[in-house]
Design a binder for these strands. Structure first.
Lengths: 194, 194, 194, 194
DNA sequence: GACTAACCGAGACGGTACGTCGTGTCTTAGT
DNA sequence: ACTAAGACACGACGTACCGTCTCGGTTAGTC
């Protein structure tokens, strides 16, 4: 889309990489808001302006860093032959929880940051939240086709409910383990109201 | 427990009240992190130290202010004769949503603050989150007794799911309206999985 | 002069004494401006207002404390039969220096305080500085009568010069020893300009 | 000695100049301890940290401001052909007094500040006190060569006595006028003890 | 091979907010 | 009337980050 710049010193990609790595490194040891921009650039051995050349805010940098590192996680839960929807959902949640047990603090910080900055909220929602929600919605719609999920139920609402549970537990510092994944899947697919 | 403090100039309760009122007033007009402590004490016409005498952080002050103002809100959803559980849940959620539509930004800021400060997280959880969660759990348990809610289902999980939905929507800036309240109640009480 | 107070709780003289003692105790261990009023009342186990009932400022308290403790020091240098003026001056200076070597820091602090507060300056000057200056002037005038000090010289100027030397050395943290006392006395009484 | 700083945004000398000017301006209108750092930076239109980048304390700033402004004052009293030592001393003292009559309050504040801060005392002594004292000592030594000042007298003691007189009078808020300068010069050079 | 323009490191700058400290006044209950 | 205790209004302090800015040096491509 953009014409390639034809002259001048090219961007040093290493600087950006170093910044992302430094940010993650510091975030694993300190709370999000105790990690100052000054600390990140010092850790990355990079100039302050170099960071601002690439990202507008600390949150943008961290979002990209986390995203890059983990974009493999939570692969789309595809319903293959011989797999029950419940089992697929279970697997998907286990993956997500597994990841959150490692990176939960950072994700919590990102959610918090999204509450304080509209622009960041939008990026975060578009890149993180929405894709994952749609994966579940798609799965539930598949389940409606296969008859595992009643057509009368609202996939969007149930999807929000599923994500809601672990947002709620994540933000309240409660455990996210395999048992929870199984319980959620059972509640979704396997119960009668009364 | 504490011996009553019998000496020294008595605490001026008006100062504390003024601070809470000032904080709420400013928070309705500005974003949480744009409301500085300096602005609050100026608005309240109170000395800086007087604020610090009462609360450790801005979040503690705001929490108490919001709590006091709204502790009537979301009255325990009691199941009275002739009321269906679903109807009671619906009403409760409508109340909560109604409140959140007015104060949602402040609550979002408090949730964000709780992610950044362990001590505040604990206070927030104990005073805000847990009581409301237990209201729902109690209601669901009642519903199990009346036969509206299957004994095989886990009230705690479903409660987390209910709160989860609106935390999720609140934090993602989505609408919380009466329709959602009804949809949640129907999903909880009225469906068959398949 | 004043009618004796006839009613009400009598003044607790112990409180005033305790304050003065506490002030001196703290001043021997800390710099003048590191000794806060809060620290003094805590050390004296006395209420804040009790201090303000007696003195307007910390400097006033300290001045009185130092004055009381040391009002014996530097007894008027009286010229008795068989004593030379030079010898009397020498003795006087030795006394003063001896005292200053113990309490010099406090006196320095008082001089500093006097530069910052007109009212205190006046008290300090009237109670401390002027009396001592006049002792020397009187001695020099006596010396003019006995012929030890030329009538053409100005006792006030020489007195200021004598005090000036040790103020200057005191404020510049230089030694005040017996040798200096002797040197001053010799310079005053025993030299020819050329 | 220092390697020239080759990197980073260069120091804005204007900021330092503005701070010094602002400090002097405010000090001529208010007492030293009524001039807050906040007022200085506001008057200078400069950031708070910029002040702290250059000086540790208000006293350091003021010392440098006064020093720069007046380092021409009290030029070394050189003994030229046809000038008597007494006359040179007289001129020197008149210069000094003239300056002190304009800036005396600031100098008094600096002397007071020096009593409360060891580090500042050392700077003040090295930059202000000692140079002026040595000028007089040198003059007196010259006078010993020319025979105006008896070899038996101690130039250091007499120098301390000269400075002492006007410190003493300065700190006690007494006049420093031409008559005093003449009297001091006469007392030093022109008297016999008896 | 010199030019050139975007890039980079370093770090000073104006600004805002912070939590702490000390002051002198006040308001109680108790002596 | 006085005390002990301590809360209060006020105001200054030095620190920490922020995002912007201004340098001198450093690259690759392009002429």
């Amino acid at each position: 889309m953009d014409k390639k710049r034809s002259t001048g010193r090219p961007v040093n990609t290493a600087a950006g990489t170093a910044l992302k790595a430094a940010a993650l490194r510091l975030l694993r040891e300190n709370a999000y808001d105790k990690v100052s921009i000054a600390a990140i650039i010092k850790e990355a051995n990079v100039a302050r302006q170099t960071l601002y050349n690439r990202w507008d805010t600390k949150a943008d940098l961290v979002l990209e860093a986390v995203f890059e590192q983990t974009h493999a996680y939570a692969a789309e839960p595809v319903l293959e032959a011989g797999q029950s929807c419940r089992w697929v959902l279970e697997r998907f949640l286990m993956d997500v929880f597994n990841h959150l047990n490692a990176e939960g603090d950072i994700v919590r910080a990102l959610i918090a940051a999204a509450q304080q900055d509209k622009a960041f909220h939008d990026t975060f929602y578009a890149n993180f939240v929405l894709p994952r929600e749609q994966m579940i919605i798609a799965l539930l719609q598949k389940a409606q086709e296969t008859g595992d999920f009643a057509p009368s139920r609202d996939p969007e609402l149930v999807s929000a409910s599923i994500h809601g549970i672990f947002w709620y537990r994540l933000l309240n510092q409660q455990v996210l383990d395999d048992k929870l994944a199984k319980d959620i899947a059972r509640e979704v697919f396997d119960h009668r109201a009364e």
